[in-house]
């Protein structure tokens, strides 16, 4: 994205919501214990809440002007970077979804009873 995001605009809300959802999913990928996941989700929530009231667009996005490119740590880009950094190599995908282990597969049925044992009655 090269556009400067507008604070509190619907587009920006969508962007942030998408980031939030992705962070929660990433947390769920890594953490298999429910209580630890809740703690992490609360932390993620806190981090988003901390940046809720930022109204300066320059702060939201790294400005690519010559002066500030190295100094400004913008929040959206930082979040994207963190999401890339912590991306799970083997994320949780529901089995039947594309990419899931059962997607497009047809496991053979198992029969509950085997063949009748042969006995020679002659």
């Amino acid at each position: 994205m090269s556009k400067t995001p507008v604070p509190f605009s619907p587009e920006n809300i969508k962007t942030v919501a998408s980031l939030y959802r992705r962070s929660l999913r990433t947390a769920a990928d890594w953490i298999n214990r429910r209580d630890f996941y809740r703690a992490k989700a609360a932390e993620i929530r806190l981090r988003f809440e901390q940046n809720r009231n930022i109204s300066d667009p320059q702060e939201l996005k790294v400005s690519h002007s010559r002066v500030s490119i190295l100094t400004l740590q913008a929040i959206i880009d930082k979040t994207e970077l963190m999401l890339n950094k912590f991306k799970h190599p083997d994320p949780i995908i529901p089995p039947q979804r594309p990419g899931g282990i059962m997607y497009d597969r047809n496991a053979p049925p198992r029969y509950s009873s085997g063949p009748v044992p042969y006995s020679n009655d002659l």
Binding site: Y20, A28, A41, Q96
Partner: peptide, 22 residues
């Protein structure tokens, strides 16, 4: 608020094994 309802969406994803596209 927008974060609250995204929490709900993620919880629903877990409940139903679906993924809400962006």
């Amino acid at each position: 608020d927008s974060l609250d309802y995204n929490d709900v969406l993620v919880a629903l994803e877990e409940e139903f094994d679906v993924v809400f596209d962006d």
